[in-house]
Simulated scan of single mutants.
Amino acid sequence: MSLVETKRQLSRRYIGRSGIHAIGLARAQNAIRVYLSAPTTGETDEQRTTLRSLERDALPYPVLLTIEEPATFA
């Protein structure tokens, strides 16, 4: 499966789970970039489990994590 197809599949499966609010591409690294909110108290175990699952589903591509809050538009 191509990098773009993998990103689409991961987006459908993981956006909205465990603080993941966007999934993009890091073409220079041939990797998937995952944007997630910083975990709140008690959420870290769930987030860790979700990220492990996402990393397995992304293989053979590496996953790069970016922690930032989602953009808000007025």
Rank of each mutant, 00 (worst) to 15 (best):
L65W: 11
S53G: 01
L36P: 01
L59G: 09
E69D: 14
I32S: 02
T50S: 08
I20R: 00
V63R: 04
Q47Y: 11
V63N: 08
E43F: 05
T49V: 01
A22F: 10
V4Y: 09
A26T: 09
R17N: 06
I32D: 01
R17L: 15
T66H: 13
L65P: 06
R13W: 07
R12P: 01
A31L: 09
L51Y: 03
V4L: 14
D45W: 03
A38N: 06
Y61S: 05
V63T: 06
A26M: 07
Y61N: 03
V34P: 00
F73C: 13
G19N: 05
T49C: 02
L25S: 03
I20T: 00
L36Y: 06
Y61K: 02
S2K: 09
R27N: 10
L59C: 04
I67N: 01
L25D: 07
G16C: 09
A26E: 13
L51Q: 01
A26H: 09
F73V: 10
A38E: 13
A71E: 11
P60H: 05
D45Q: 13
P70I: 07
K7W: 08
G42A: 12
I23L: 10
H21N: 01
G16E: 08
R17Y: 08
E5F: 06
L51S: 05
G24H: 07
S2E: 15
S37R: 15
E55L: 02
R52N: 12
R12M: 15
T49N: 11
Y14E: 08
L25Y: 05
T41V: 14
T40C: 02
A74V: 04
L25C: 07
P39C: 13
A38I: 06
G19D: 03
T49F: 07
Y35T: 00
L64D: 03
T44M: 10
V63F: 11
S11E: 10
E55Y: 09
R33Q: 10
R56E: 06
S53D: 02
R8Q: 06
T41W: 09
A74Y: 06
S53E: 06
T41I: 12
P60D: 06
G42T: 03
L54G: 00
T50C: 12
T41A: 10
L54F: 03
P39M: 11
A38G: 11
T41F: 04
E55V: 00
T44L: 12
R33I: 15
G19H: 02
L54W: 00
L36W: 02
T40M: 08
P60Q: 08
V34G: 00
T6H: 04
A22Q: 04
T72P: 00
D57H: 11
R13K: 13
A22I: 01
S53V: 00
Q47L: 06
